[in-house]
Design a protein around this nucleic acid. Structure first.
Lengths: 350, 350
DNA sequence: TTGTAGGCGTTATCAG
DNA sequence: CTGATAACGCCTACAA
């Protein structure tokens, strides 16, 4: 029953609050709230008066206060390995497309692929009470990660699928993409096809490896253990792998790189060793980052619909947010398409 | 087991609050707050008890509530033209470096270089009460922008300087960078140097244009109006410009591109026209994005310390935040360095 | 249609 | 050292 001292306790800190607008417009705060959030319940004339008062005072709603009250922050957390990786921004744009249309903002974090950083960033995001989480190529089997994901914050995985848990998941049809690539190479006469694998603890890298093996089998090509080298999705990994390949007595005549960046690494190595592409060997990347299309690179690659995937993932999260968590995990798999450019050619006659 | 009987008015929504921890630990909420935020005022034994209770309940502070109370969101807003531009992520990493170390998160927005989008995003960021703003290559002279910047939210401009206002500013020494490039070309015997300009309404593009003119003057080269073509910092702009150049009866023997992406556009055009670099003409980019160093590109370019610039800018904002706005605008100019690679060579003897 | 009051989860201010 | 309590700015029953 403590009656509040109902006068000018507000507008003290310089910032103008909803109270000030109410006073200026001569209405109650609830009316201001209703008017400004476009509720049809307020009379047009009242709304105009409120709007005028708000404009006059330069009032801007505090999303912080609204978030606390509504238990909703209109914010999504995005976890990337690295924004600087050329394929990340495309996913991000897709995520943003949907987030924007849903009045949500994006809290973007880099993890550099390190588990401890990922955990720290996830905790920050959760403490900030983001409405949802979009996890791009993140660790997803580690128990600490699962523990954090166990809360009631909706999330979706992109390009990393858990075997033991049923998550929202957006990925690509690796079987299809890699299959087309192998087929393309075989058609050009290649029989010794090297693979630069993606990093460990990556379901996507595993899938692609399996697809590669399957491709070989399909075309009755021998499996040569040496022809599979571990990469890291980076230029350097591709460079090292290429060095390794070309030190072999009988090197592959074609290389399937884990991604375009790895393929670039191969190009660097080739240049250094005086090998020409596709005259001396063929090369296929994966991602179809913009760079791959530039004349000097001109890389045959397997395209990923990154922007669409980001958008689809975010769509899924938004749905879960709206449904208050009572939505069972959905999966969405996007097609992959082989883009033939200049880095592949007929096998050289030895 | 996670569900508790609703005995208190708190902990109703499933989320455990500071009240629950207080009850569990048998102390007051204020003590929990003090203990968990590491205030030395609490006795060690109490702190441990509180910590144990918090862990047991899985308590996580609500940054939302804290933000409302403290009038500080520990959030910075970042405005980019486009994350997908290869130079953006490097700035972003620099910004993140500092933000992370200051426990701040980043709200990242794209504006696509459009004024209306920029204004909308700024409003969103301000409504969210970000502690500070980092504006990368954004419009900064428009009155609507100034009006928004007029509030008490600290901000810093990167690569866009206002003539009429005294802002925090982080930029690069364009005079130095362009100067070195022109000098390099002149030393190689070039006397017809073309410039692909950056977009309009960009102080940086203006500065670089001025530096180019100054460079010509310094080496007593004639100013040829035709040799300056408008670009857009994109591949296509560079492509178009190159087409324009090589349609001239006496085209430039060297091209200075507004940035590396424009230079790539020139490379694409050259390839199409059967022109070789640097045999037929020399090319210099600007930014030194990673791509520029890849063997197939191998672009001579003017390097920008993007990550450092992002970090410096964020440092400035953080300082302003701490000083509660009573800090006069600072400027920081970073050096630019010419990186000579394979796209420049001696002028061809005609 | 409009007004009143309570509470979202914290931290800061005091009083013990 | 610890505890009670008042804001922070907003939305939303519910009352008028």
């Amino acid at each position: 029953m403590t009656r509040k001292p109902p006068q000018s306790k507000h507008s003290a800190g310089g910032k103008v609050s909803i109270f000030d607008v109410a006073r200026e417009a001569g209405v109650a705060v609830s009316t201001v709230s209703n008017a400004l959030t476009g509720k049809t319940i307020v009379k047009a004339s009242t709304r105009e008066r409120v709007q005028a008062a708000a404009d006059k005072l330069g009032y801007r709603v505090s999303v912080v206060a609204r978030s606390l009250r509504m238990q909703r922050t209109f914010t999504l957390g995005v976890l990337l390995a690295d924004v600087a990786n050329p394929s990340s921004p495309d996913f991000l744009r897709g995520i943003e497309d949907i987030a924007d249309s849903e009045q949500c903002s994006l809290l973007v974090c880099n993890t550099d692929g390190q588990l401890d950083k990922q955990l720290a960033q996830m905790r920050v995001l959760l403490d900030r009470r983001v409405d949802g989480l979009v996890l791009l190529s993140q660790h997803c089997e580690q128990p600490e990660v699962r523990a954090l994901l166990n809360g009631d914050t909706p999330y979706v995985m992109i390009q990393r699928r858990s075997l033991s848990h049923d998550d929202n998941y957006v990925g690509a049809n690796n079987e299809e993409g890699i299959g087309a690539a192998v087929k393309h190479l075989v058609a050009l006469g290649h029989r010794r096809i090297g693979l630069i694998r993606g990093p460990r603890d990556s379901s996507t890298a595993d899938e692609r490896y399996a697809a590669y093996l399957h491709g070989l089998q399909l075309h009755r090509l021998p499996r040569v253990a040496q022809y599979v080298v571990q990469g890291d999705y980076q230029v350097n990994g591709g460079y090292q792998a290429a060095k390794q390949f070309f030190a072999m007595p009988s090197p592959p005549t074609a290389i399937l790189a884990a991604n375009d960046m790895s393929a670039i690494g191969v190009m660097n190595a080739a240049h250094e060793m005086g090998l020409r592409i596709p005259e001396d060997f063929s090369l296929i990347g994966l991602d179809d980052i913009e760079m791959a299309s530039f004349s000097p690179i001109n890389l045959t690659t397997i395209a990923l619909q990154r922007r669409e995937m980001g958008a689809a993932a975010t769509d899924l999260v938004m749905k879960m947010i709206r449904q208050k968590g009572s939505l069972k995990a959905k999966k969405k798999i996007f097609p992959m398409k082989l883009i033939v450019r200049g880095s592949t050619g007929r096998v050289r006659e030895d």
